[in-house]
Every structure is written in C-alpha cells, then in structure tokens.
Design a protein around this nucleic acid. Structure first.
Lengths: 113, 113
DNA sequence: ACATAATATAGAGATATCGCAAATTATCAA
DNA sequence: TTGATAATTTGCGATATCTCTATATTATGT
C-alpha cells in the first residue's frame, strides 16, 4: 500500500471537519468507542457476527436524546464522511466507528494541518 | 503543567472543527505553515521582531483571492478558535499559526475522537 | 487637520444547517 | 395479508454560514 492510498485529500478532510462541527455528532462518535459500556445490556450491540461493536439507530437515539429522524440523519452525515460504517441486518441498521478513516484523519491533521 | 491544562475540551474542539469546515480557511492555515515560500518577497512577512512568520491580512487576501472583508472575517474565525494568533503593528495586523493550539488539537483527535 | 492605507464591522441576499413531525419504505411475525 | 417495529426520506420553519459591498475605525504621513 503506497503513501497516496491512505492519505485523505483536503476535500475529504473538510467533509470530516463538517461532520465533526456539531457537538452531538462528536458525542455519537465518542460513545461508539465503547458500546458495551455506553449502552444497556438490552441494547442491540453486535458482539460478534463480523460487525463487532455495531449499535442500532434506536439505541443511539435514546442515548443522545434526539428525535429518531435527526439521529438517522446525523448518522448518515457521519457515514458520508467515512467516520462510521453501517450494516443492515434485518430491520436494524447497525453503525460502528470506521477506525481506518479515523486513523487516516489523525494522520492528515499531523501532516497537513 | 498538568494534563488538564493542555487538553482541549469538547466545546473548544467543536469550535476548531467549525473553523476548519471550510476549504479556504484550511488553505489559509496551510499556507501560513511556510510564509517565506507562499508569499512574495515584497509581502509583509515578519521574520523577526518576536512575531516570526506573521503575515498581514492584505497579503493573505491576495493569496486566497477573497474579498478584504471575507478574509478579515475568516481570520477572526480562525483566531476565535485559537488556531492562529495575531499582533497589530502599526496599521498592519499580522496573523500566524498558533502551534500550541494545533498540537493540543492533534492530541485531542488522538485521545478523544 | 487632512488624505491615504490597512483592517474591521455592518448590512444584506443566497445558501446551508439544525432539528422536528409526518410520510414512506423495509423487514419481520402472526 | 395485516399489523408492528425500525429506519429513511421529505417538508418545514428557525437559525447559521457564505461572501459580497459599503461604511467605520485605526494608524500613518504631510
């Protein structure tokens, strides 16, 4: 893998900055760092099945206290930016952090900012 | 200096994300990394006098191609966020990167995001 | 005091974001 | 197929951001 392929470009970085320019979206990313600790045991947190740490929208919703539609919209902004990834299983959509993008973002800050 | 004093809080970080959620403001921060290289020799770049690397507003303006007022406003957004610092000398206002905040921000990303 | 240069602030129209309720779509279960 | 649950999409009013022109402020030189 060469240097290019894991370096974000400015446009992608600005997309991420936009996604993070809202306290609640930052919070969502933060609570997804430790789903087992941040959600109740009844919550739909995936602990196996190849999408470990994925949390469904309604559980995230009840944790951050926004309306369902706003929560869904914020998650799709985070998804668009690449900071999270999602997987639909049955009627649930599970979201989890995309650590690859987050690492690339960290690297971008260190080198380009 | 303890751990607290050089760790940004979430609110300060969101302020920085907002400042960086605009391509031109990111560009301004980037060109201020190397004023000697990014501005003409006639530009008002401070190379000594205790505010090394400071560039005046009109030189930044002509480099980024925005109106005078927008440039001034963008610089004050960057200033508010702490990413740059300024010093007025005579009729000129010089802006330069605030590497301390930038380092703190980098640390915040690594630890809190 | 006056003219000039550099910067900041005010005001405004266009566009984007915020966050909700309501409507729609997708999936499951009986 | 009917009903329930989960999520997305749409529509909306409120607020914020973008970027300009015009004006005000501050500092310098005559």
């Amino acid at each position: 893998m060469n240097q290019e392929s894991n370096m974000l470009n400015d446009e992608q970085a600005v997309e991420i900055f936009k996604a993070l320019s809202n306290q609640i979206r930052v919070n969502i990313l933060q609570i997804l760092k430790d789903p087992d600790h941040n959600f109740s045991t009844q919550a739909h947190v995936i602990r196996e099945k190849g999408f470990d740490g994925g949390v469904c929208v309604s559980d995230i919703r009840s944790r951050v206290g926004l309306s369902q539609s706003t929560t869904s919209q914020y998650l799709s902004i985070l998804l668009q930016s690449g900071l999270v990834e999602m997987k639909r299983i049955g009627q649930w959509t599970y979201y989890r952090r995309n650590e690859v993008t987050i690492k690339q973002f960290e690297k971008y800050i260190g080198q380009k900012i």
